[in-house]
């Protein structure tokens, strides 16, 4: 019998180990699995490599994970979001590593990783500093740069609705990186707004098939990052 439901956040993230690569869904606060991130802070794993489009805002969620010294390296496209103070400070003092990746290349590297494709060529970043030192190849008269697929030990993502097989649907632009991160991680951990019976989600509307998901925790009323920031909250 397949049942991916896990009762507690702490059980869901218990085996994330020091030095792990962790993909975290979200684009700014939309789709950020804030309860899972806070559970990871409580769990204590450190020296993580984190893949996310940004570096978090304020002192909660991803920014709090970074502020608590758990992240050795960020792989992201835009570490300079409004309200992002934690990362810039650590970066300037040399305490955190940054791999800057164009957003589409980041998405495609994750997709490729999840699809078993070790590398691919793209025109994005050719003739810019972000292509320096990378293999170039010409196809039909245009230069392309080689980029590697990206895989992770864990993915933490947020869904709107899930069933016990791990089939997922999302809410609007909170979907962003979640479906591809679910594919690219060895262990994908989901926080979902509602958990429903297997068979109750129309197969036509399932976005992430359960094969890409390992654990589902139900968080019916997730915190809203911008609200926590407005209230001046920090974590822990």
């Amino acid at each position: 019998m397949i049942d991916k439901h896990i009762d507690s956040l702490s059980d869901a993230v218990a085996d994330i180990f020091d030095g792990a690569t962790v993909m975290i869904g979200g684009f700014g606060e939309a789709g950020s699995p804030i309860e899972l991130i806070h559970a990871l802070i409580d769990q204590g794993a450190k020296n993580l490599t984190v893949v996310n489009n940004n570096t978090g805002s304020g002192h909660v969620g991803l920014a709090a994970l970074i502020e608590n010294g758990r992240v050795g390296k960020m792989i992201c496209s835009y570490p300079r979001t409004v309200g992002s103070k934690v990362f810039p400070e650590l970066y300037r003092s040399g305490k955190i590593e940054l791999e800057l990746v164009p957003q589409g290349t980041l998405a495609e590297r994750i997709r490729a990783g999840g699809a078993g494709i070790p590398a691919f060529y793209t025109a994005t970043s050719v003739n810019t500093p972000l292509a320096e030192g990378k293999e170039l190849r010409n196809f039909d008269g245009r230069d392309y740069v080689m980029e590697y697929g990206l895989r992770a030990d864990f993915a933490l993502i947020k869904s709107e609705c899930a069933d016990n097989h791990g089939n997922l649907t999302y809410n609007k632009t909170a979907r962003n990186f979640a479906p591809i991160m679910a594919m690219a991680a060895k262990t994908t951990i989901v926080q979902t707004g509602s958990l429903c019976e297997v068979g109750s989600i129309d197969p036509e509307v399932i976005v992430t098939p359960g094969i890409f998901v390992n654990r589902v925790v139900e968080i019916p009323h997730p915190a809203q990052e911008s609200k926590l920031i407005a209230e001046g909250r920090s974590y822990p």
């Binding site: 496209s77 835009y78 570490p79 300079r80 990362f87 810039p88 970066y91 300037r92 940054l98 800057l100 990746v101 164009p102 957003q103 589409g104 290349t105 994005t124 970043s125 810019t128 972000l130």
Partner: peptide
């Protein structure tokens, strides 16, 4: 000392 940030511009 600039924090480099590219987003989707290159794509």
């Amino acid at each position: 000392d600039a924090i480099p940030a590219v987003g989707g511009a290159m794509d």
